[in-house]
Design a protein around this nucleic acid. Structure first.
Ligand SMILES: [Zn+2]
Ligand SMILES: [Zn+2]
Ligand SMILES: [Zn+2]
Ligand SMILES: [Zn+2]
Lengths: 145, 145
DNA sequence: GGCTCAATTGAAAATGATTTTCATTTATAA
DNA sequence: TTATAAATGAAAATCATTTTCAATTGAGCC
């Protein structure tokens, strides 16, 4: 999903497409890394100065409610976001602890485990959270130098 | 692992076993639910009033560094804790969205997926985060009434 | 049982992240 | 172009967490 199509999707949902929102979408779309609100805020200062941190928070909330963002739970902050490449599609993340780069994967194959847990515990299961943490090839090179 | 043995473990590691720490361990040990720092703080007020929230934070940090606690990432707060039943043993959690009750399971069987991701992406993988979210039997009854 | 001392505690202040408030501006549809 | 509801930004408010520091205390030692 491109930055432009994210903007169009917002409009289709009845929201205004302001320059601030374009800029924020632009920053998120142009990053392979997961970004916190203040990461996004500081990246904005270069290309689009003057946008308030409040607007970043509000836009993130809007994009998230519209299903256009992914969350990453890695590390300590639970508040780090990423463009959702294919909205609606079930997937998970492999995250680099060095640079924050995120790779998606769709085959989690947790169905059997889920069924067994359901019958063993009496819980009904609604969803799951799965993330792998590691180091991407280029971050590994840096360390070994 | 009992509350008492958690206390002993702390002493073995060279820390003092104060009444405040006993009380906090007691609260955590007596709960099947994951608890945030302020959850713990408010539960303390009944049985052991006067313990400061700062002490709760400090004790949680200590217990976590000693590997005696589990973290739950469910929901919005990344800061919710639980007694670690068998320190050192690899396991994951099934969490009730209604009451917060947590059930452990040890068989995650993510090795094959991990190997495939490693070779497909060039990442090295260090760890993973896996949690199932659902509703326990008694919370399901409440809803259906 | 008392003595000593570093570790621990709690109150208050400081910090940091997020949310709310509200007056002003602006994207969009007519 | 105009009207209008939505969106913005600055500042204040709120909430979670950490730091500071003086007073207290657990645990080893006599
Ligand atoms: Zn990397
Ligand atoms: Zn999955
Ligand atoms: Zn429940
Ligand atoms: Zn596992």
């Amino acid at each position: 999903m491109t930055g432009k199509s994210i903007g169009l999707q917002l409009r289709r949902n009845g929201f205004k497409l302001t320059p601030q929102r374009r800029a924020i979408i632009d920053v998120i779309s142009g990053s392979e890394e997961h970004l916190t609100p203040s990461d996004i805020y500081s990246r904005l200062q270069h290309k689009y100065p003057g946008i308030g941190l409040v607007t970043v928070y509000r836009t993130l909330e809007l994009l998230e409610n519209s299903g256009l963002l992914c969350e990453v739970h890695i590390g300590d902050t639970c508040r780090s976001y990423l463009k959702r490449k294919r909205p609606g599609e079930h997937h998970h993340h492999l995250v680099c602890a060095g640079c924050g780069k995120v790779v998606d994967f769709v085959d989690c194959e947790l169905g059997d485990l889920e069924n067994r847990l359901t019958s063993e515990t009496g819980f009904s299961i609604d969803s799951h959270l799965l993330e792998f943490m590691g180091r991407c090839a280029s971050c590994r090179k840096l360390v070994s130098k």
